[in-house]
Design a protein around this nucleic acid. Sequence first.
DNA 1: GTCATAAAAGTGTAAATACACTTATTAGAA
DNA 2: TTCTAATAAGTGTATTTACACTTTTATGAC
Lengths: 154, 154
Amino acid sequence: MTTSDTANDPTQVRIAWHCTCFNVRRASRAVTEFYDGIMAPSGLKATQFTMLGAVSLMGPASVTRLAERLTLDRTTLTRNLKVLSQQRLVAISAGEDRRERVVSLTDAGQAALDRATPAWHEAQAALVKKFGEERWRRMIEDMAKLGALLNENS
Amino acid sequence: MTTSDTANDPTQVRIAWHCTCFNVRRASRAVTEFYDGIMAPSGLKATQFTMLGAVSLMGPASVTRLAERLTLDRTTLTRNLKVLSQQRLVAISAGEDRRERVVSLTDAGQAALDRATPAWHEAQAALVKKFGEERWRRMIEDMAKLGALLNENS
DNA sequence: GTCATAAAAGTGTAAATACACTTATTAGAA
DNA sequence: TTCTAATAAGTGTATTTACACTTTTATGAC
């Protein structure tokens, strides 16, 4: 930020660079790029690693239940699962309730998860070290709190 | 380790819900939805508001310079600007250096920015209030720091 | 002055995201 | 039992994001 930039309109400056949405989206881009860069050789992106991990954790679960757990729009999850499904990393079958689709991890999915886990650890450890453990922990709490606060009233 | 063992493995739990990337992306989704919900009547999404604000702040500027300022991939910005350009909110013309494209705010763009500013204030104020001013300020700093840390080494 | 190289930008492709709407199925009331 | 309302999921469309690659233009070495 140079002096000539801020000379224009201090109000606009405050809006532009103090915007919570801008800052969290920028942080999201930076972190995603960082994780993806380290995890690329494993064949999984960070988002896909998270989804496979959620499926693994929850066992066979419906799309809606997974979406709730990930705090992700259900239709977004449908589209994201399609990618994993095409790679045969998850299997999607009809549930007992025929309206439901049950998502489960395939053997290939479990293998991919296992293969990517060391890279995830590497990325996570590197970030925590760069940031400082205590501060990192505080920030994770803040971010979780943020999600909880904003999702509860709507 | 069988699949059912994995489902109960505290290590997997730690990975899934302590992942920095997952948490920052989830926070990003929550905040974006919150801002967009409040700003919708103004006709601008939070991301578009940010871009228009950046163009307004920097005056006519090249795509690369804007992308650097927003810490956004240049090709992403090209695509995002296309939307604003089609709505005639920004104008894109050749620079003195013929390789450059210079982006500037149109009158309609300035009007849209002015129209959306009160809604942005409303969203920002509501979030800060919910979160607590001091904690919010700390978090913004942390997120900015995060971006700076991760972008400097690569 | 010519030409190799760097710089600026756009395109092809694909993933992640979500809103509005539709379809299929279950549950519950009359 | 029948039918209406609620639930689960998918589709159409559009935006945001970024990597790999190409095209256009300027710069600098010789």
